[in-house]
Nucleic acid binder design. Structure first.
Lengths: 215, 215
DNA sequence: CCGTGACCATAACACTGCTATGGATAGATG
DNA sequence: CATCTATCCATAGCAGTGTTATGGTCACGG
């Protein structure tokens, strides 16, 4: 066997590509610029990834990994509803702090099946959190999936409308809060408990905002 | 004054651009191909629009106009909640019948302020429908905006996750129905009335599905 | 009946992603 | 240890992109 592949080049390419994408958006990520910035040749992208589309896929996976890592930083407490709200706040903050990356992950191109699976790992914490709410008896009996996907879709809806410039930032934030209240009462939580958890979760969301940069 | 501008060329460009975008997606819309397909030269795009970004903006506006026209086809009945549900179903069907156009409108590029205004015309029917529900006493007192933007964001959330391939089509449809139920009870409608309106609205949504092509 | 100025066809430019080619190099093999 | 070989990647070129400079054409106002 001959000269083995240098993994350092691969990670350098991914990190530079993620940085360029995060800072200047999809169109700024150009084959020649990436190669120049890493100090490699354009061929490196082809030997390591196969082409620009596969490179962009790697950038998406990187973005999902960062988002998952960010979500993993919200800890469980004895108020699972507040935990879910804190998760949502962390998701919201991370997305709006890195709009170009979020766009690359969820709005550019169509993800294939394997990347949809990776993207879903981002959804797992939410699913678990909702499950904990159900176990604690805060919500009326239901399957976690049924509830969590409503939360995720609404969260993503406000985030992506905001990023697309279709809704004013203030309207998005207020709307998300209203929707949170709507879901909590619809899921069966009592209005008083919901309000208390919302306050607690929001405070934690604000507190965790400082670490929202994508590395 | 010399040779006056021919508006027929302009609309031919927009229609061809919208058709190409709708059929094959954003990357298929190429300056040279568009010019060839219309039988004009590439310069026509520059005299009429100024460049590709402005042309894409025109395509977005065209997409918004088509979506608005589609939504305008759902009539008022004496069940305003069913009307809103039918509106949502029409939105959902139109978007999924023309995913490339919907992507161009809401997911590609960032819209500027003036196009955000045009895009919001798509939101007006929903706002009006929710207002009618409030007037009819079906929902607890609130501002139409506060309720309508929750509905819009959730609708867009499921649609865009579906188009992005991040959620299984079945999960999106089921999730949207669950979310509709959640919102109706959270907004103050009685479960029985909500269920009846949901059934009526869904039937009308299915019936209106045949005309979901984008022209 | 011109002119004149908006419209647009032609051609070139810088740039994109991509591929063919060949040189360098690190590991396996005798 | 020497050689061989297959992998990695730097160079150069190709087709295609959006954009712009140039000049011809033709409908209108004088």
């Amino acid at each position: 066997m001959p000269k083995v592949a240098d993994p350092a080049v691969r990670v350098a390419l991914i990190e530079a590509a993620a940085r360029i994408t995060a800072e200047e958006g999809r169109d700024a990520l150009t084959l020649r610029r990436l190669a120049a910035e890493v100090g490699a040749s354009t061929m490196a992208v082809y030997t390591h990834f196969g082409g620009m589309t596969e490179l962009r896929r790697a950038v998406r996976r990187e973005g999902f990994a960062r988002l998952a890592a960010h979500l993993a930083r919200v800890d469980d407490t004895d108020d699972p509803v507040a935990d879910v709200i804190a998760l949502g706040a962390a998701y919201y903050r991370m997305a709006l702090a890195n709009p170009h990356l979020y766009r690359a992950m969820f709005m550019d191109g169509k993800v294939d099946d394997e990347d949809a699976h990776v993207g879903l790992e981002t959804y797992q914490p939410l699913l678990r959190g909702v499950g904990r709410c159900l176990d604690a008896g805060r919500f009326s009996p239901a399957t976690p999936h049924e509830l969590a996907r409503q939360v995720w879709a609404t969260l993503h809806g406000f985030v992506s409308l905001h990023i697309a410039g279709m809704i004013a930032p203030r309207d998005a934030a207020e709307g998300l809060e209203s929707a949170t209240r709507s879901f909590l009462v619809a899921f069966g939580d009592t209005p008083e408990a919901a309000e208390a958890s919302l306050r607690r979760g929001r405070e934690r969301g604000l507190a965790s905002g400082e670490g929202a940069s994508a590395r």
